[in-house]
Simulated scan of single mutants.
Amino acid sequence: MTGTGRPARRLSNEQVIVLQDPDDAAFAPFGEFVKPPAVSERRAFYSAHFDPRPETAAPVVHVNRVAPSVLPLVCAGVERHPHAAQCFVPMDVSRYVVMVMPSDENGDPVPAAAQGFLVPGNRGVIFRPMVWHMGACVLDRDGNFVVMMWRGGPGADDEFRSIPPVTLMEPGA
């Protein structure tokens, strides 16, 4: 997964999203932000996102290295995984951008309802199955994520779509 990283050149009809801080309630329809437990000696569990296991699927864990992008940037493509949740846990990331959007009644992405988040490098993200999202996009410097998901289920689990350009802006820009 790779973010576009291309500097924004705004067109008059282009959608602009001002990135917001991670907001658990706003993000809940799309997944969950992964964060450390609030109390020492405790655990925060996120395993429920990976149930039920797709038939014949196997767990996949890999590390992505992502080149940095610069805000504002333009996103013209999204992806989703119909059969499995996808989890990104930063290993060495300054901050990164998450953009998600719902599907319409035909399953197509709805860019007009997109939301964008500016996420610090000490939080991960889990995308629910079927959630359209932008590819991994780090800021400031190269970044590394541990990525976890199921692979090899009953059908292809990577869908990619082009969307009308969406410009993502830093708050206060």
Rank of each mutant, 00 (worst) to 15 (best):
G3H: 05
A8P: 03
R9H: 15
R9K: 09
R10C: 03
L11M: 14
S12G: 06
S12E: 12
V16L: 04
Q20P: 00
P22K: 07
A25P: 14
F27D: 05
A28C: 13
P29Y: 00
G31C: 00
E32W: 02
E32D: 12
F33G: 05
V34L: 07
A38M: 08
A38T: 10
V39W: 01
V39F: 04
E41L: 06
E41C: 05
R42G: 03
F45N: 14
Y46H: 12
S47E: 13
A48H: 14
H49G: 10
F50A: 02
R53E: 08
R53D: 00
R53P: 00
A57Y: 02
H62R: 13
N64R: 10
R65A: 15
V66E: 12
V66M: 10
S69T: 08
V70G: 11
L73W: 13
V74P: 05
H81W: 04
H83T: 10
A84W: 00
V89K: 01
V93E: 07
V93H: 08
V98N: 11
V98D: 11
V100H: 03
M101D: 13
S103H: 10
E105I: 14
N106M: 12
N106A: 15
N106Q: 15
V110R: 15
A114K: 06
G116T: 10
L118T: 10
P120K: 02
G121N: 13
R123F: 07
G124S: 01
M130P: 08
M130E: 15
G135Q: 06
A136H: 04
C137T: 12
D140A: 12
D142L: 09
V147R: 08
V147G: 02
R151G: 13
R151N: 06
G153Q: 03
D158A: 12
F160N: 11
P164E: 04
T167Q: 15
L168E: 01
G172Q: 01
